[in-house]
Write a protein that binds this DNA or RNA. Structure first.
Lengths: 149, 149
DNA sequence: TAGTCAATTGCGACCTGCTTGCGACAGGGC
DNA sequence: GCCCTGTCGCAAGCAGGTCGCAATTGACTA
């Protein structure tokens, strides 16, 4: 690798920025920081949460800018948002598609591989001609531990 | 009084009111009207929607009273609420348990019998010890017609 | 290296969907 | 008919986002 700049893991960030630029978009600090925040921790983060990370480095980035850029990145297919419950939406990278199981009692969130939904996928298609996308809303229920009690 | 009042189909309404009374609750006009609105049309209705129906007869019933009573009825197990998309929650009678398939393109809502989820139910249990409750959040996707285009 | 201009930003106001605190009102057991 | 307490109407508040606008700033061009 040749002369790495300050941030070490910024390669995928640059890739997305290139994609943005290719579409006539511009590379701004807010965008770069947001992407870095997204790539740094791969879990599910709320807009507010991401804003806090970005603002730790660039205090002037406004929450509305975060929302606008999250929308833009979702349109580009870089991230997706899901609803894990009644609160705010969660954003994560679109690269490993998966659904979610969320415990109604303790809040535990399980990442469920798409394949887990294959039975439902088949029956929804056969019965209603409906093609499901299990990623947008979580499936609620009770986890092993809470169920045991 | 034996002479039947105006509303004809109020039998199940009276049943719920009796349940409420048995628990130390009181029977008020707001509650009766809300229950009538719920039993009159069995589909999925928003709080605002139900409020409009109630207010057509009793204009003073406040939306906050509607919310409080919907909560109460849900605690009693008479109704459930589900989220069919990004908008407001939908309320319906708990009597026929079912999930929902919602088309992301046209908004079509399909009532899915619990049995449709049996495959997912099994795999979630086997793989994660997780017992799903498919009723709370809808499963998004695309309906037959939108998929065809 | 500056000039240009549209994309993007920060900011504040606004919106929807719902919740809460409070004093007034009213079921219903006595 | 009284009294107690559950419920109500109202207004204010809150969370999570969205939007309009003027100011700023990337990045293409000369």
């Amino acid at each position: 690798m040749s002369a790495v700049p300050v941030a070490p893991a910024s390669e995928p960030v640059e890739e997305v920025l290139a994609l943005l630029r290719a579409r006539g978009g511009r590379v701004t600090t807010a965008r770069r920081q947001l992407l870095e925040a997204l790539f740094e921790s791969a879990d599910h983060r709320t807009a507010e949460d991401l804003a806090a990370t970005v603002q730790a480095r660039s205090p002037d980035v406004h929450i509305s800018t975060i929302y606008r850029n999250l929308d833009e990145l979702e349109r580009l297919g870089v991230i997706v948002h899901t609803h894990l419950g009644h609160g705010p939406a969660s954003y994560h990278l679109a690269s490993s598609p998966h659904g979610h199981l969320v415990c109604e009692t303790c809040g535990l969130t399980i990442e469920a591989p798409e394949q887990l939904f294959s039975g439902l996928s088949r029956s929804a298609r056969d019965r209603f001609g409906f093609r499901i996308d299990p990623r947008h809303f979580a499936v609620l229920g009770r986890c092993r531990d809470c169920e045991a009690q």
